[in-house]
Amino acid sequence: MRSVITAWSAISPFGFGAGTFRTGLRTGVPAPVVPSPAGSVRLVPDFDARAVLGKKGTRSMDRVTALAVAAVGELAGPPDTAGTPARRPAPGLVLGTTGSVQSTMDFTRSSLDGDRPFYVDPARFPNTVMNCAAGLSAIRHGLKGPNATVAGGRAAGLLALNYARRLQAGGRAGTLFCGGAEEYSDARARLYHHSRGGPDGTVLGEGAAVLRLEPAGSAAAERDGLAEVVALEFGVFEDAEEIPATLLGCLRRALERAGARPGDIALVAPGETAGPEQAALTSLFGRASPARVDCTGLIGDAAAAAAAFQVLAVLVRAEDDPALAGSLALVTAVDHDGTVGCALLRPYPAR
């Protein structure tokens, strides 16, 4: 069984909501940068959890959780207090994120700095758990179906999409919301730069991108379908030198699974436009490179939300170019901690 994307939401450095993401992507002007102790970054402008979500339950909510809850809420709407009919599975959520590094460090520091190790704020402990954002999103929006959190760095959005697709293929879920969420923090910036030996010019970003996924053939998929998820493939590597070959293997397996050739791909949304990811794409396409959309260059490195934003970029481009309908679009992701992945999507004609 294949899955179909029927709707999406975005909270990005362009602003709040799908409309601002569309406008930012179409104009091609990078989101504004703001100074931080770690250098220039691209933040979601004027985002305040209490202003967006209300005062109830947000006193101790960290930024990544608030971004996820707000983005899911854009699609899920108010909770279904009447309950879901037994014949239809309850909607669920699969979120790609590693949680909040800042929350984990702050909680640990409070234990070390306090008069006693146990003199900590228990209300802030949930923020240190990776599945906090997905759990609170489900609670606030009444999503009683499967709830999962998938880590994977820049590939997390694709890993979440694959997890959701497998749930639907196994008959364990109907409607699913899936995507990725990431916050900017000084702690995240320090870890990023130290892991690479120092600042490398990368502009960090943040945000949340969420898709609504329906099983192919369902009434919702037939009525609201935007794109079909055709194939996803993943690989792992140990050394950076292995990235081009590992990613190229993923690309070829995805094409084989789709029964397609490189020439059938009309659009590529890469995670990086240079380096080993580009080398793999050059090996696949040669000189006949398809059109490209650079999401990272516009909103910054959104880490766990990056691949989900790349999927949204494909959907926006398909809205603007009817010629993409029926063709294949490729999304690639490389996380330098050892994971690569790719997705083949087939946009539907505009309705």
Rank of each mutant, 00 (worst) to 15 (best):
S3G: 06
V4K: 09
A10M: 07
S12M: 08
A18H: 08
L25Q: 08
V34N: 13
V34L: 13
S36M: 04
R42P: 10
L43G: 03
F47H: 02
F47I: 09
F47W: 00
D48V: 15
V52I: 14
L53F: 03
L53V: 04
K56E: 07
G57Y: 10
T58S: 09
M61S: 03
D62S: 05
A66I: 01
A66S: 14
G73Q: 08
E74L: 12
E74K: 00
P78T: 11
R88H: 09
A90S: 11
P91K: 04
L93G: 06
S100Y: 11
S110M: 07
D115I: 07
D115P: 11
A123N: 14
R124Q: 12
V129N: 05
C132Y: 14
A133C: 03
L136W: 14
P146G: 07
A151E: 01
G153T: 11
G153F: 07
G157C: 08
L158Y: 07
Y163N: 11
L167E: 01
L167T: 02
T175P: 00
C178D: 05
E182W: 09
S185D: 04
G201H: 09
G207C: 08
A208E: 14
A209G: 14
S218M: 10
S218N: 06
R223H: 10
G235V: 08
I243A: 05
L255E: 02
G263A: 13
G263V: 02
I265C: 05
I265K: 13
G275Y: 04
E277G: 15
Q278G: 03
A279E: 15
A280L: 10
L281S: 08
R287P: 01
R287W: 09
G300N: 08
V311T: 13
A313K: 06
R317V: 07
E319A: 14
V331F: 06
D337V: 13
T339L: 14
